[in-house]
């Protein structure tokens, strides 16, 4: 088996394992390249007939291209698409000016509301260990408590493909079928399988998005990679991190406070 086959079969094993254990299972679909790759794997795992709903947490600040892609492909692939929006927070005027609060209200709270509404026991998420430091400690099956807290110092070992997939009540389990993939793996797999993704990832006028989310908190990188092959070539030589255009915002509130205290602002 080549590397991509191994990655694929490990992921499909986890997806099927999750479906076997959880009666109420859904998959989160942000419409980014990772969760779209995961959706591809889910379709393959169930031979095209996907038995679980897709949950999209809509902050209302996503790129227009993402909404278009979401609607086009959920229809084309015959998915049961659920859209969750924290309407109360949006009505109260939550915008990206308050970076930290915004993510909490529109993403975390939006997800909490959806879990409560639909009673999901477990969710498939397309996170990967190589995205940033803290995710390196994640497990394939990772419980969250009712406050959504993740205790990374209290995690079961996952040896020989044996997973602890039961947890106490009032929790939900996050399942991470792509945990072992890297950013480059995703792109090589997209190439091999010819997976459709939004063209925000490809360069226009010398810029492309390496990671996408809300328009307000994503910055494009300088790039001339206008197709999958060129993206792969670029990643083979880059030294900067994938989320360089994103994680910044969440740290800014902290940074500004420190700089202000020292008179830099």
């Amino acid at each position: 088996m080549d590397r991509l086959d191994e990655l694929e079969s490990q992921s499909m094993y986890i997806i099927r394992e999750a479906y076997y254990h959880y009666h109420k299972l859904a998959m989160l679909w942000s419409v980014g390249k990772d969760s779209t790759t995961m959706l591809w794997l889910v379709r393959k795992a169930f031979l095209g007939k996907v038995p679980i709903p897709l949950l999209h947490i809509d902050t209302s600040y996503k790129f227009p291209e993402m909404y278009q892609f979401r609607d086009e492909y959920s229809k084309k692939w015959g998915m049961n698409l659920l859209i969750a929006k924290n309407e109360a927070a949006l009505a109260a005027g939550m915008t990206c000016e308050k970076k930290l609060e915004c993510c909490t209200a529109l993403k975390t709270e939006g997800l909490k509301q959806a879990i409560a509404k639909h009673g999901f026991e477990a969710l498939l998420l397309g996170i990967r260990r190589d995205e940033h430091g803290i995710r390196a400690k994640e497990r394939y099956f990772s419980p969250r408590d009712e406050q959504f807290q993740w205790n990374y110092q209290d995690q079961p070992p996952e040896l020989w493909d044996q997973y602890k997939n039961q947890a106490e009540e009032k929790t939900h389990i996050r399942v991470h079928p792509l945990l072992h993939w890297t950013e480059k793996d995703i792109w090589y797999y997209i190439k091999r399988e010819n997976i459709p993704i939004t063209d925000l990832y490809f360069a226009k006028n010398g810029k492309r998005y390496r990671s996408i989310g809300c328009t307000t908190c994503c910055n494009p990188i300088e790039s001339n990679a206008s197709n999958v092959d060129e993206v792969i070539a670029e990643l083979e030589s880059t030294v900067t991190s994938e989320r360089a255009g994103r994680a910044q915002d969440k740290e800014d509130a902290y940074t500004m406070q420190k700089l202000r205290a020292l008179g830099y602002m």
Binding site: H132, G133, I134, A136, K137, E251, Y254, T255, K258
Partner: peptide
């Protein structure tokens, strides 16, 4: 300076 938390301070994260 400007590292937000100890959890995210180190490589390797462990």
């Amino acid at each position: 300076f400007l590292t937000p938390t100890v959890d995210r301070a180190a490589y390797p994260p462990t």
